[in-house]
Simulated scan of single mutants.
Amino acid sequence: MKTEVSIDAGMLTWAIDRAGYELHDFTEKMPKVSAWISGEKNPTVKQLETFSKKVHLPFGYLFLPEPPKEKLPIPFFRTNSPQTNKVSVNVYDTILLLQQRQNWLKEYLKENEFEPLPFVGRFKGNNNVSQIVNSIRTVLGLTEDWATHFRTWQDALNHLVEIIEDKGIITVFNGVVENNTSRPIEVDECRGFVLVDDVAPFMFINNSDGKAAQLFTIVHELAHIWTGHSAGFDFRTLQPANDPIEVLCDKVAAEFLVPENAFNEQWIIDKDITSSARFFKVSEIVIARRALDTGKISKAQFFAFYEAYKNREFIKKQSQGSGGDFYATVKKRLSLTFASHVNNAVKTGQLLYRDAYRLTSMKGDTFDKFFAKTA
């Protein structure tokens, strides 16, 4: 006989809403759930397990007397909207996952006598853009025109990430929850977030975003680390939220990637967004933003350009095939620096394999093969 369980209807509807589904659409696809909510029938344990996976909720949560108070551990800023405490379950789960990894790494580094990073929070309470930009360049060992020495923006991006990781900042690129491609993180909802810590700062960049646009997100997050503020953001139309720290970090990113004096000189030569983007190794939309900021184009021209650019990028993305090397993808999703700390901890007996599997979202042969390839 199959074991049936009684579940509060409010918990079921909360779980469906939390996962981002409309109740009507969800019950059309899973008609049995309607009967559970109305109380006509009770689900079996197996049916409830299937339901919990579908709504991305730990099975045990469904037996709580009322929905738990889930709170984002960081402020999340939306362009043209107030700060929010509500994001999609995919973004929420990703923030919690990286927070768990950060908590482990922080303790591991302290136990192994790693020193705090001196640049974290160095400019807390200071809103001098040029000072912050100069400090970031100095710490990373980069000149003002560093990106122009690379052939492509991809080369510039790779070089920047390598330096950032070398300085102890964990840099994660992902567009899905863990390795689950059926749980995408929409770019318009989350371009990135940063978890500031003076021992183990973590940055997340949405890998579904345009590669050149990711440069801007990375430097925006560096500014958050230098000013000592954790946050998430959507950066719609590449505009910051109406918050003093977001506006400051936005200005720092713009000046770091496209210095105003150099941009003014370059604009005199070609007066062209595409050529300037090639020169500075950033996306055209970043150059368009800089042109708007410096009064070279109007708001109407910028938004018209933004829409056209977005449509071009969408078409380009649609024509690209999916797939690729899983292990190369996991390197970016995990961060090679973080992976090396996990590997060392396992080898020295400071971390159990069971816990290493949880921290890396891999297990068994996949875990072993990944570390064999990255050793």
Rank of each mutant, 00 (worst) to 15 (best):
Leu72Pro: 00
Lys167Asp: 04
Ser335Lys: 13
Glu221Ser: 11
Gly20Asp: 08
Leu257Val: 06
Phe77Asn: 00
Thr374Cys: 06
Pro244Tyr: 00
Pro118Ala: 09
Thr138Ser: 15
Asn343Gln: 15
Val286Asn: 08
Gln318Asp: 06
Ile7Trp: 05
Ser275Phe: 03
Asn103Arg: 15
Val219Lys: 07
Glu265Tyr: 07
Phe51Lys: 03
Phe63Trp: 12
Leu12His: 01
Trp104Ala: 08
Lys41Cys: 02
Glu111Met: 13
Asn207Lys: 14
Arg191Met: 09
Gln102Phe: 05
Asp234Ile: 00
Val129Tyr: 07
Asp368Gln: 10
Trp36Pro: 12
Leu140Val: 05
Arg101Phe: 03
Lys71His: 01
Trp104Lys: 11
Lys54Cys: 05
Ala241Thr: 01
Tyr108Asp: 11
His220Gly: 04
Ser81Met: 12
Lys271Val: 06
Glu115Cys: 08
Phe314Ile: 07
Lys2Trp: 02
Ile16Lys: 08
Ile269Pro: 14
Glu307Phe: 02
Leu98Asp: 02
Leu292Asn: 09
His341Gln: 15
Ala223Asp: 10
Leu109Ala: 06
Phe263Val: 05
Glu4Trp: 00
Phe216Gln: 03
Pro201His: 07
His224Pro: 03
Lys106Ser: 10
Ile74Thr: 03
Thr84Asn: 01
Glu313Phe: 03
Val252Gln: 03
Ile225Leu: 12
Thr360Trp: 06
Ala147Gly: 10
Thr181Ala: 02
Ser319Asn: 11
Met30Gln: 12
Leu96Ala: 07
Glu22Phe: 06
Arg312Phe: 08
Gly20Met: 13
Thr171Trp: 12
Ser34Thr: 14
Arg137Trp: 09
Thr237Pro: 00
Asn242Met: 01
Asn158Arg: 12
Ser335Ile: 10
Phe193Val: 00
Ala200Cys: 14
Ala372Arg: 10
Ser276Thr: 15
Pro73Tyr: 01
Ala356Val: 07
Pro75Lys: 00
Thr294Phe: 08
Val176Ile: 07
Leu98His: 15
Thr337Val: 10
Thr84Pro: 04
Thr79Tyr: 02
Val219Trp: 10
Ile74Ala: 09
Pro73Glu: 06
Phe193Pro: 01
Leu97Trp: 14
Val252Thr: 03
Asn80Leu: 10
Ala291Glu: 03
Leu359Trp: 04
Phe150Glu: 09
Tyr306Trp: 14
Thr171His: 04
Gly141Cys: 10
Ala223Met: 09
Phe338Ile: 14
Glu165Asn: 15
Thr152Phe: 09
Val282Glu: 01
Gly125Met: 12
Phe263Tyr: 12
Lys41Arg: 14
Glu144Tyr: 09
Glu313Cys: 03
Ile287Val: 12
Asn343Ile: 07
Asp17His: 15
Phe371Arg: 10
Glu246His: 00
Phe314Met: 10
Asp365Met: 11
Pro118Asn: 06
Pro65Val: 06
Phe216Trp: 06
Leu351Lys: 11
Leu140Cys: 12
Arg290Trp: 08
Val5Asp: 05
Gly323Ser: 04
Ala372Lys: 15
Val187Ser: 06
Glu260Arg: 14
Asn264Thr: 13
Gly168Thr: 08
Lys211Glu: 14
Ala253Glu: 03
Ile37Met: 08
Ser6Lys: 10
Val247Lys: 06
Asp93His: 13
Ile74Glu: 01
Phe305Leu: 05
Ala304Ser: 14
Gln350Thr: 08
Val139Glu: 15
Lys46Ile: 11
His220Lys: 12
Ser322Tyr: 13
Trp104His: 12
Trp267Thr: 05
His56Lys: 15
Gly60Ala: 06
Glu66Asn: 11
Ile245Thr: 00
Phe314Glu: 14
